[in-house]
Computed example of a mutant assay.
Amino acid sequence: MTGASAALAEPIVSVIIANYNAAPFIEACLRSVLASDLADIEVVLVDDLSSDEGLALARAIAATDPRLRVIARDTNGGPAAVRNQALAQARGHWVAIVDSDDLVHPRRFTTLVAAGEASGAAIVADDQLVFDDGVASPPRRFLKPADRTEPIRLDLDSYLNRAVLYGPEPDPGFLKPLIRRDRLMSARVLYDETLRIAEDTDFAIRLLLAGLDYLVVPEPLYFYRKHGRSISHRLSLAAVEAMRAADRALSARVMSAYPALAKRCRARARALDRVAALERLIAALKQRRPIAAAAELVRNPAVIPLLRMPIMGLAGKLRGSAPPATLSPADQFKHLLADADAA
């Protein structure tokens, strides 16, 4: 099926992409999505009032491929609001979430749709290759080795157990699922627009609470880019407080429906409390208020293990080690494809 005919029919997959100042990455992202071996897709990109040339780059690609629709917002609403707007425009049987700075394997949508149809699951995701932007170091698998041998089912209990901020398990909120659109519409679940970080985790928990089942296949067909601009790697006290407020409301719903999951909810709340304490501690240190920082440590000694993250980051800068070998975007994508096919 050609791109033009695919755009006219009801697509199998609607790929939704929230874009905000992702000009260095958006072209590669879109080209990897449009190169899918499943031609019967549409791509709905919503730009969140970017100040760079990313919107123009997306529009230039849309002019050559009618499967891509570009929508420009006139206000900045954050990733949750942008995804909700894209979801309202989606027409496919499945909705796929892709971030504007990431890449996908050409086989990804075919593989996940086949897995979803065969299993009957309403939500399907895959393992990821996590790579550092432009760096020639080997990518890392996201899932633990024990979860890479066969598909795993995530129910509400197992998802909550894993979705603990800075916890011991890979947080499934980082996975980018395909969701059956009819089930999504029936569930009437949208992204929480008060969240600018961790909106994916909150969204998935509410889908599971609504009865949708979740399958994760072990193939690493999603390529997750790590770089300094990423919103998901920039916490702030305001963002953490929004996460805590949303989690309190969501945990109340979970515990009301499933009292046995109260332990899981409390563990997630404690993790968010520790991160909030860490952000208060860092703010006090930046403001040169050592007494306030020390008091925060006394009140919240559980924050001490988390201090290794900013300390290790600062130590890396102070060491001044030689910069790593770099790769061009095209070469990096080729390496990722080879690593995924060899996995």
Rank of each mutant, 00 (worst) to 15 (best):
A6T: 06
A6L: 09
A7R: 13
A7Y: 09
A7L: 12
I17G: 02
A22I: 01
A23V: 03
E27H: 04
R31L: 11
S32T: 15
L34R: 11
A35G: 15
V43M: 13
V43W: 11
V44Q: 14
L45H: 07
D52A: 12
E53L: 13
L55Y: 05
L55V: 00
L57S: 08
L57Q: 14
R59E: 13
T64E: 14
T64Q: 15
R67G: 09
L68E: 04
V70Q: 05
I71G: 00
R73M: 14
R73P: 01
T75G: 06
N76M: 14
R83V: 05
R83H: 13
N84C: 07
A88R: 04
Q89E: 15
A90P: 04
G92N: 03
W94G: 00
W94M: 12
S100K: 03
D101Q: 13
D101S: 12
V104R: 09
H105C: 09
F109C: 05
T111L: 12
T111Q: 10
V113K: 11
V113M: 11
A115F: 11
G120Y: 05
V124T: 08
A125V: 08
Q128C: 06
Q128V: 02
F131W: 14
S137I: 11
S137E: 14
P139W: 12
P139H: 04
R140E: 14
L143A: 05
K144T: 08
K144V: 07
P145Y: 13
D147A: 15
R148V: 02
T149V: 13
E150C: 06
E150P: 00
P151D: 05
P151Y: 02
L154W: 00
L154I: 00
D155E: 09
L156S: 10
S158K: 01
Y159L: 08
R162Y: 07
G167I: 03
P168K: 14
E169C: 14
P177Y: 09
L178V: 10
L178H: 02
L184Q: 08
V189S: 04
L190K: 03
E193H: 09
L195T: 07
L195R: 10
D202G: 01
F203V: 04
F203M: 09
F203T: 03
F203G: 03
R206F: 06
L207V: 08
L215Y: 08
L215C: 04
V216H: 01
E219G: 11
L221Q: 07
L221E: 04
R225H: 09
S230N: 10
S236F: 10
R248Q: 11
R248N: 06
R248P: 00
A249L: 14
A252Q: 15
M255V: 15
P259G: 08
A262P: 00
A262M: 04
K263C: 03
C265D: 01
R266D: 09
A269N: 01
A269V: 05
L272W: 03
L272T: 05
V275M: 14
A276I: 06
A276V: 07
A277R: 12
A277D: 06
E279D: 12
I282C: 13
A284C: 13
A293W: 10
V298G: 00
A302N: 07
I304W: 02
R308P: 00
I311E: 01
G313F: 07
G316K: 15
K317T: 08
G320W: 05
P323E: 05
T326H: 10
S328M: 06
S328W: 00
A330S: 01
L337N: 08
D341G: 07
